[in-house]
Structure formats: C-alpha cells, structure tokens
Design a protein around this nucleic acid. Structure first.
Length: 285
DNA sequence: ATCCAGGAGCTTT
DNA sequence: AAAGCTCATGGA
C-alpha cells in the first residue's frame, strides 16, 4: 500500500480486498451519497469525495494532516487476506466473502455510531439514512458542501419534539437522553480500553441501547472485531445456515464465539450483506 | 390494508 | 428467566 498527497487529495494505491461501494453501501454507514462515479460524505471533520479505480482509492478533501485517520476509517491497515484464509473452511461464509470481496468493517466516530444505531432499532436502512441526514442538516456543523454529525452537546440541548420532527419517532427520547449522558461525561472513548464484554455491558446502560446496538457501536466504532451485531437477518443466517437453535443472548454469543472467533464481527459483515442481497436462500422470508 | 424494518423496554407469565 | 406487547414511521 502506497500513500501520496497532491491537490488536497489523498491517494492510496495498491489496496487489496477493498471495494469502496461495498464498504459504504452495506448498512454500516448511513451518510455517504453516491455521486458520479464515487461517493460524497462528511467524515472525521472533512468533506470528502471518494473514488476508487482498481486498487487505487482517491480521497479529495483529505490532506496529510487528516490522512492517517482515514486509513483507520476504511480499516486499510488490517490484513483481510489472512482473515479470509482463516475462514476458508466455512462454505457459507466463503459464499459471502466471494459475493463481496472488497467488504471491510469501517471504524467510525463513536458518538455518531451510537446515535445512528439507536435510530436503527426496528427501522429500515432507507429511513435511517433520511433521519440522520435531517439531523445533520439541522444540528450539525456545515463543512464544505455537507454537514458534520452533531456534537453530543447539540443533541443534548434539544427537546424530544425536535427529534420527532426529524422523523425519529419513538426513539426521540432515547436520543436526547443518551446524548445528555455523553455530554455529561459518559466516557465513550474510554470503552475502547475495556474488555469487550465490559464495554458491551456498559453501553447497554444508555437508553435505547440493547445488546444489538451495543455490538454495532463496539464493532463499527470501538475496534472490537469480536462483536457480532445480531439483527433479524443474522438470526436467519445462524438458524438456517449454521443450525443455531439457541434462544437468549448468552447462547447466541457463545455460539458465535465458537463458530467465528476473534473476527466474528467481520464475518458478520460478509454474512449480513450476503443475506440481504440473496433473500431467496431463506425459507423464513 | 397489513406487514416489515440492522430492537429495546416494560409487563405479564 | 422467558415469552408477550408496544413503540413512530414510511415503503412495499
């Protein structure tokens, strides 16, 4: 992998196992918009136009100062080839990895991830994106041609009705209350230094955050690759493709840990994307 | 019209 | 502990 900068652009050449469109359109990030041949989005305080040609990724709007955090954002320092080899014995997962060979798990800002996945509860991707977009336009900082995700303090200062007006529905109260706890000192970043299970449990102290949303935050923003967000689709996969018959959260986690191990979250991302785009393989749908 | 969506929280067995 | 009910909203 070779990194260079020119004209306020970051250019990363020689990336293997990477597809920009697969990474940005697989339900883990909600704020990138397809535009021309690439994607526009505001991330990490930069208004970015991202474009991929072969094994080269160009990020317009990212300079040397911001470069390193984007390497991490796209998870480009991780050896996905080695991880795929470790899963080569699993036929169903292999089908998923073959279906989206360039899928990676992004590392997004914790507060944005937290609020986004509180909104995701009992909701669909299209509407989740629309709600978050409205939230950013109304309460986020203007950056270039877009808006950043609002700070915790900004959301904490709102009333429930303000978030209902953004389309958040019954989750409006959860958003205000969770944002207030973060603004009031709940240490989101500190969770990354805890053992996974402790971080996961601590996250569920926040209103609107249960086991699944906690796993999304752990996986997509805190670096816990063993976290395995289990939504309705993943449960279909586990039951129908892996013979899972458990009932509660502990049983599911034990099953997943034994089956997928330390990179269960990455496996989950391949499986989720594969399942959502191949609904015909499930009987329960 | 009815069902569903990257669930969570509260109430009832 | 485990199963059941409800929650706001828009698209299919």
């Amino acid at each position: 992998m070779d990194i260079s900068y020119e004209n306020n652009s970051m250019i990363i050449r020689g990336i293997a196992h990477f597809s920009l469109s697969e990474c940005l359109a697989c339900g883990q990030a909600f704020r990138w918009r397809q535009e021309g041949g690439g994607f526009f989005g505001v991330a990490l305080g930069c208004a970015v136009y991202a474009e991929q040609q072969g094994d080269t990724l160009t990020l317009r709007g990212v300079d040397e100062r911001a470069g390193a955090v984007f390497i991490r954002y796209f998870d480009l320092e991780r050896d996905y080839g080695a991880i795929k080899e470790a899963y080569a014995h699993d036929p169903f997962l292999c089908a998923g990895m073959a279906f989206a060979q360039g899928l990676r798990v992004l590392n997004q800002p914790p507060f944005e991830t937290l609020i986004s996945f509180i909104i995701s509860a009992n909701n669909n991707v299209g509407r989740i994106s629309r709600i978050i977009g409205t939230l950013c336009e109304r309460y986020g900082e203007r950056i270039g041609d877009g808006y950043d995700f609002p700070e915790a303090e900004a959301l904490a200062s709102l009333q429930e009705c303000d978030l209902v007006a953004c389309g958040a529905g019954y989750r409006a109260g959860y958003i205000v209350d969770t944002a207030s706890m973060v603004a009031d000192g709940f240490d989101l970043l500190g969770l990354a230094g805890m053992p996974y299970l402790k971080a996961r449990y601590t996250l569920t102290m926040l209103p609107g955050v249960g086991p699944k949303v906690a796993d999304c935050v752990a996986l997509y923003s805190l670096g816990f690759t063993e976290a395995f967000p289990a939504d309705v689709w993943m449960k279909r996969v586990l039951c129908e493709a892996y013979g899972y018959t458990g009932k509660n959260d502990n049983q599911l986690r034990a099953f997943v840990d034994g089956r997928f191990g330390a990179h269960a979250g990455l496996a989950q991302q391949y499986l989720f994307h594969y399942a959502r785009n191949n609904k015909h393989i499930f009987t329960n749908r």
